[in-house]
Design a protein around this nucleic acid. Structure first.
Length: 385
RNA sequence: CAAUCGUUUCUUGUAAACC
């Protein structure tokens, strides 16, 4: 049955459901009894496809055939509930296990802790961690990474860094995920110095960063307007054999737009074309931002035309940027025209355009118009103050 | 005796306001 299970799991991972089911029937034809593992594989596949109810049904049938589930079955179900956004039901299953006195492992705990993290209940997450220790179940890297991710999600970088060191103290070696999480948190926070420290630590223990990590760091420097810092990371990245992609280039463009000259950003645009990585909407949005910042509205127009020529479409941010160009120069009416255009375009909306228009009307003393937009914002379901 | 099943990464980028 091990062979059959391996095949079934393999096909399901490739999303080849028919083939997988073929193997199941082949199994029964040759009177090989599907076992718990078979059951787990199927239940997991159903949960991953959002078919929680079918999974439970399958389990009930399985139980009738004396296939009692094991801890892994329960873990899969609990995780399925969590993915479904139903933490209460997940806890129901968990209580079922605990009351039966089944011995548990760190993986179920990891799943539960993840569940609490996803609903930002870090207090419960932490008390489950304590419970692990009490039961003599040692947390592993996944436990710590889950907690770090949860803490970062609620913006608690301090505690996340704490966890990171705590993990080392517990004798666990932070892996590439631990580093990626912490570097991401620090970069988004604007603490590029600490992020760079972690990069060095990561390199010193021989972990090779994935391209996204390099790009995170370059963007970290870009946010601070530190162009040379950004380029230093890019050079290091190249030296370590990673190739720049569109994200890398955009991060560098970001750095120039934020802390340097538009001209340099435009040079980069040429370099992108030469290297076969054409600028995308995000690149154009940033360039538009730069042109607008330097007061070059002619060039803003040119960029928009250039972008449309290349077959790209304006997205929400393009429109917002263009509106911002108008409002910065006090042209409320033009901004408002663009605003209506945007509404007709069927793009998904955001609160930012409303804020721009309202602020711009207010500055001009046109309170009636501002109020009208404010009301519209409410009608469309954007809560404002 | 061993081998098959479960958990961590919004995988990386651009705009607003507050200040």
């Amino acid at each position: 049955s091990v062979t059959y299970n391996t095949l079934i799991d393999g096909y399901l991972r490739l999303d080849n459901v028919d083939k997988a089911l073929d193997i199941v029937s082949l199994m029964t034809q040759r009177s090989v009894r599907p076992d718990v593992v078979t059951c787990n594989i199927l239940v997991d596949a159903l949960c991953n496809r959002g078919l929680l109810d079918s999974a439970k049904k399958l389990l009930l049938e399985g139980l009738e055939e004396h296939n009692a589930g094991n801890l892994i079955t329960s873990t899969i179900l609990i995780d399925g509930c969590i993915k479904h956004g139903d933490m209460l039901q997940a806890l129901d299953h968990w209580n079922g296990i605990s009351t039966k006195g089944i011995s548990v492992d760190q993986v179920v705990y990891n799943v539960l802790i993840k569940g609490f993290c996803l609903v930002s209940d870090m207090k419960s997450a932490h008390s489950y961690l304590c419970e692990m220790f009490k039961k003599g179940i040692l947390p592993d890297i996944v436990t710590y990474n889950t907690l770090i991710s949860g803490l970062l999600r609620i913006g608690n970088i301090r505690e996340a860094c704490h966890m990171h060191t705590k993990m080392s103290l517990a004798g666990l070696v932070p892996d590439h995920i631990s580093y990626k999480l912490i570097i991401r948190g620090l970069c988004l926070q604007g603490d590029i110095l600490k992020a760079a420290e972690h990069l060095n630590k990561m390199l010193s223990v021989g972990i090779v960063p994935e391209p996204p990590v390099w790009n995170l760091l370059i963007n970290g420097y870009a946010r601070c307007g530190d162009i040379s810092g950004a380029y230093a990371v890019k050079e290091l990245m190249l030296a370590m054999g990673a190739l720049p992609n569109i994200f890398t280039y955009n991060a560098l463009v970001h750095a120039h737009v934020k802390g340097g000259e538009l001209a340099d950003a435009l040079l980069l645009k040429q370099e992108m074309l030469a290297n076969g990585i054409p600028p995308d909407v995000v690149t154009y949005n940033m360039l538009i931002h730069g042109a607008c910042k330097s007061g070059n509205s002619q060039y803003v127009q040119y960029l928009v035309r250039d972008m449309l020529c290349k077959g790209y479409h304006c997205d929400l941010i393009t429109f917002t940027e263009l509106m911002r160009c108008f409002t910065l120069r006090g042209k409320c009416e033009e901004a408002d025209v663009l605003f209506s255009k945007m509404q007709k375009s069927g793009l998904t909306f955001d609160h930012v355009p409303f804020q721009l228009i309202i602020k711009s009307y207010c500055k001009k003393g046109k309170l009636a118009e501002a109020y009208q937009v404010y009301r519209l914002m409410h009608e469309m379901g954007f809560v404002g103050r």
